[in-house]
Amino acid sequence: MKGTTLIIPAISNYDQMKQLFSLAITFLLLGRLAAQDVYSCRNATLGFFSSAPLEDIEAKTSQGASAINIKTKAVYFKVPINTFQFKKKLMQEHFNENYLESDKYPHAEFKGKILEAVDLTQNGTYPVTVEGALNIHGVTRNYREKGTITVQNGKINATAKFTVRVADHKIKIPTLVVKNIAEVVEVSVNADYQPVK
């Protein structure tokens, strides 16, 4: 609001000043309303599951960041790759070092939109379709996936389950361990949102 303090002293006419103030207040209010359209979550749970002939692999993190704008229907997810916890620590090391290369590509990120016209100010459970770009391992792919959004008294929960083909994101699995790691992994997402103040 630097602009206001800079310009107002230059205005001598009282009516104009009054006009300006009401204008300023109106827009400030609009700004606040706009901010209230955004809901965020800093502990989104993300997990994946890979089922291969020799081994089932499961990993989970609850350090995902996510946000939804209920007006524009924009959806955002970002998760630090190295926060995924595996039961086998050696597997976790391989996941970070050899497959996801979390040194080079520390995050997975999704930017998308809810396609349906849903009113997320109203309580209810809404099946939705989200479309957008998912970046994993530095490779961006477009996805269109189903999810569920539940609104209850100003709190929003979102869940989704979808599959990712590892080859789509240039994650190479050597032939030697091809029986241990599935080509398609199931990803699950769960986030509880609060309005951004």
């Binding site: 609001m1 827009f27 400030l28 609009l30 700004g31 309303l33 706009a34 901010a35 359209d37 955004v38 965020s40 800093r42 960041a65 946000a67 939804i68 704008n69 007006k71 524009t72 924009a74 959806v75 955002y76 970002k78 990120e109 930017k111 951004v196």
Partner: peptide
């Protein structure tokens, strides 16, 4: 000012 808050780049809030 309000436009900046309402923009679609939600990643900025983190």
């Amino acid at each position: 000012a309000p436009a900046a808050v309402a923009q679609d780049d939600l990643g900025a809030i983190f």
